[in-house]
Design a protein around this nucleic acid. Structure first.
Length: 466
RNA sequence: GCGCCGGUAGCUCAAUUGGCAGAGCAUUUGACUCUUAAUCAACAGGUUCCGGGUUCAAGUCCCGGCCGGCGCACCA
């Protein structure tokens, strides 16, 4: 029977640092208890060398028939077995820091191997379905998921440092809202009610601001029942935060600082390389209106005031089908996506979106057909989305009603009227700015990964049907 | 959802024009007192993803299905 515990008192990584000064063949006189997984095993008659890895790194185990108990069993260990070892820290004649094994025990056996000891595990299906094996076999996977943890820690600390309080809001929602997306639905038996997994926590968070929490953030999972791709997982992690008394300019300032600081916390610099190309998070990020960028991309002046018919023609030239229900605003936003979006490499704020595509954003103070909204883009992808929040319950009702008309016309991503939210606005939402930041996308950039599944420990896969 | 590509031993990968299904590592056995992906020797290891079809003969060609990668669509 394997032990129930092990009196562990040292880590491989620490030993490598602490005993860096040991010269070849020198013995430290210090006995340690280390534990980890056997990654490699080299036997040589009455000697055996094992490479053991724990969460901090690797250290060699040096076993001798003359010293090590049950030596004949030690040399029969399998790659992947967990062992606990007691022995002296030494450096071998050939220069490898080692624990000279006196007593030891198998803590757990590995009944399956961990892939080729040189090539690891390459099969995507196996790696994603059995990430536990992938993590042992592939250093890159360990580094990427550790980096995700670093990003989460940094983002939280930066939010706390700016006096945002972390809150949690419902994942089970009677109405899916706060974004435009198809939801997952589920059912609560005792309440005899249909629920939807949240597509965004937005409205709940603003209700907390109404309640007097002036700066709140939530770092949590949202769910969207849409296609999967190298950049889309059905569940993903969003940082949403709201600050009373801020407008979207303030929030853009905060956003660029947040991302730049996270990059610095995690990588030590705002200057990184992504997929072989330099990428700079250095602030300030350019701020360009959607109309400007779209005009540049299509080679003529366009805006939300351009006749819808003309915008529709420009879209048609780009093979975009234009439904009857789209107004000039939606056409402009679609034209932006079709023409300008993919070329935005370094971070940039795209601002002043049409009201038509921004049902929760406050109208622009200089043009009521636009909103005070921004989206940051990097590497041609949307990274964040924020705005001066619409806090007028009358206008919000009009926006919801417009969404309801779209839904009636067949748009299954349109928002639904949320009476509870409207009532909350009637109690008074101060001027507030909000932000939603896609954490997975940010981790992809900071981990130099091109597939979102690499930055998610257990990405959503189709269940096997054997 | 559509298109392209892929699935061969536990893992990483070969297999020419349709012609005996292979190697390295892992496993098993043996040798070896300073190895570093140790080395050397030997044994063993297969529903070639699944189901049909064409053919004297199919890993290879055709049809259907499953799973994955990439692109498109949708979207963040």
């Amino acid at each position: 029977m394997t032990p129930y515990s092990f009196a562990h008192n040292a880590y491989a990584g620490d030993l490598q640092q602490t005993w860096d000064h040991l010269i070849d063949g020198e013995e430290s006189g210090v006995t340690v208890h280390v534990a980890g997984r056997v990654m490699l095993l080299r036997t040589q008659g009455k000697l055996a060398f094992a490479t053991m890895r724990d969460s901090t790194g690797e250290v060699q185990l040096f076993a001798l028939a003359a010293l090590t108990e049950r030596f004949d069993e030690f040399v029969r260990l399998h790659l992947g077995d967990w062992v606990g070892v007691v022995g002296e820290v030494v450096r071998t004649k050939r220069g490898e820091l080692s624990v000279k094994v006196v007593s030891w025990s198998t803590l757990a056996v590995a009944q399956h191997n961990f892939g080729d000891k040189w090539a690891g595990i390459a099969d995507f299906d196996l790696r994603y379905r059995h990430r536990e094996a992938d993590l042992w076999a592939n250093e890159k996977s360990r580094l990427t998921l550790a980096r995700r943890s670093d990003v989460l820690r940094s983002a939280r600390e930066r939010c706390w440092a700016a006096n945002f309080m972390e809150v949690e809001t419902p994942i089970l929602n009677p109405i899916p809202t706060g974004a435009s997306a198809r939801p997952f639905s589920t059912f609560h038996n005792a309440l005899d009610s249909q629920f939807y997994l949240r597509i965004a926590p937005e409205l709940w968070l603003k209700r907390l601001v109404v309640g007097g929490f002036e700066r709140v953030f939530e770092l949590g999972r949202v769910f969207r029942n849409e296609g999967v791709s190298p950049r889309h997982n059905p569940e993903f992690t969003m940082l949403e935060l709201y600050a009373a008394y801020w407008d979207y300019e303030n929030m853009m300032n905060f956003t660029e600082e947040l991302v730049a600081n996270v990059a610095t916390d995690v990588l030590g610099s705002t200057e990184i390389s992504y997929q072989g190309r330099p990428l700079s998070f250095a602030t300030p990020w350019p701020r360009r209106t959607m109309a400007e960028l779209t005009s540049e991309a299509v080679g003529e002046e366009v805006s939300v005031h351009t006749p819808r018919r003309h915008l529709a023609n420009l879209l048609a030239q780009r093979d975009v089908e234009v439904p009857e229900a789209w107004g000039a605003g939606r056409c402009l936003a679609e034209l932006f996506e079709a023409s300008a979006e993919s070329s935005l490499w370094d971070p940039v704020f795209v601002t002043d979106h049409p009201v038509e595509v921004s049902p929760l954003a406050r109208r622009h103070r200089n043009d009521t057909t636009l909103t005070e909204r921004f989206e940051s883009y990097a590497v041609g992808r949307e990274l964040s989305n924020g705005f001066s929040e619409l806090n007028d319950p009358v206008d919000q009702r009009l926006r919801f009603e417009e969404q309801a008309r779209l839904a009636a016309a067949g748009d299954d991503e349109a928002m639904r009227i949320d009476e509870d939210y409207l009532r909350a606005l009637e109690w008074g939402l101060p001027p507030t700015a909000g932000l939603g930041l896609g954490i997975d996308r940010l981790v992809m950039l900071l981990a130099d990964e091109s597939n979102i599944r690499e930055v998610i420990a257990f990405p959503t896969l189709k269940p096997r049907r054997d």
